[in-house]
Computed example of a mutant assay.
Amino acid sequence: MPTQIVVAGAVIAVKEGRPAVLIAQRRRPPELAGLWELPGGKVMPGESEPAALARELAEELGLDIDAITVGERLGADVVLNRINPAMTLRAYRVELVRGEPRADDHQALRWVTSVELPNIAWVPADRAWLVDLARALW
C-alpha cells in the first residue's frame, strides 16, 4: 500500500511586534485530543502538496484559498510507519495574505513565539520540527 502524504503549514506572521507561528489544538482522535499541531491534512490523489495544504488550511481555518501562499519546505519528513497506511508528514512555510484564522476544525488556535515552542504540549510527530520552527521565527 502506498504511503499517505500529510502536509502541515507553518503559518508565520508578526504578532505584537514578534514573529509567531499559528498552532492548532486537536479535537480528535481521543489519544491526540488537546495536543497542539501545525494545521494541515492529507494530500488527495492527483493533488500537489502545496495545493493540498492551501485547501486544507482554507477548510480548517475558515479562510479563502487565495488568501494562502504556500512557500518552501520546513524541516525534514516525519515518517509514521506504525499506522496503516504508513504516513509521511511534510511541513511548509505559509503566508496568510489576508484574513484571520478561525478554529473551525480545532478546539483552539494560538500564535506562539520561538521562546514558547518547547513548552507546548505538541502531538508527538510535530516535535520533530521544533528546531526548524524556532529557526524560522528568528
Rank of each mutant, 00 (worst) to 15 (best):
L96W: 09
I83N: 06
E60W: 00
A91W: 01
V7Y: 01
E31W: 13
E31T: 10
L61C: 09
G40H: 02
E95R: 15
Q25H: 07
G46W: 13
D64F: 04
I68F: 12
L130R: 12
E60C: 05
D66H: 13
A125G: 11
L80I: 15
A24N: 03
R26T: 04
L57D: 03
P118L: 09
Q4S: 09
P85S: 13
W122C: 02
G34D: 11
I68P: 00
A13W: 06
P101D: 10
G9T: 03
R102G: 06
G40K: 00
V115E: 15
A125P: 02
P19E: 04
L130V: 09
L137I: 03
A128Q: 10
L38S: 00
V78T: 11
G17E: 07
P39G: 12
T3C: 07
K15R: 15
V123N: 08
A125R: 13
V115H: 12
R90P: 01
V11N: 00
R82G: 07
M44I: 13
G75L: 08
E47R: 12
L133D: 00
V112H: 10
A86R: 14
L130Q: 13
V115P: 02
E37K: 07
K15F: 06
R73Y: 10
H106Q: 03
I68Y: 02
A58D: 02
E100R: 14
P50R: 03
N81L: 07
L53H: 07
R135L: 11
E59V: 03
P39F: 05
D64Y: 05
P118W: 07
R26Q: 12
E72T: 10
A52P: 00
L57T: 08
N84K: 14
H106G: 00
L63F: 01
W138A: 08
A103F: 08
N81W: 06
E49C: 07
L61Y: 06
R102C: 04
E37P: 00
I65K: 13
L133M: 15
D105A: 14
D77W: 05
E59A: 06
S114Q: 13
L80A: 07
I83Y: 08
V70G: 05
L57C: 09
D105F: 12
R28W: 13
L22V: 09
S48A: 14
W111K: 04
A51H: 05
P45W: 14
L53G: 00
S48W: 13
R26L: 11
L61R: 05
A10Y: 01
R26I: 02
A8S: 10
A108M: 07
D66V: 05
G17P: 00
I83G: 08
E49D: 12
I5N: 03
A108C: 09
V14S: 12
I23A: 05
N81M: 04
A58F: 08
A33Y: 11
D126L: 06
L117F: 08
P29C: 14
P30L: 14
V115G: 08
E49Q: 14
V123T: 15
L53N: 00
P118V: 11
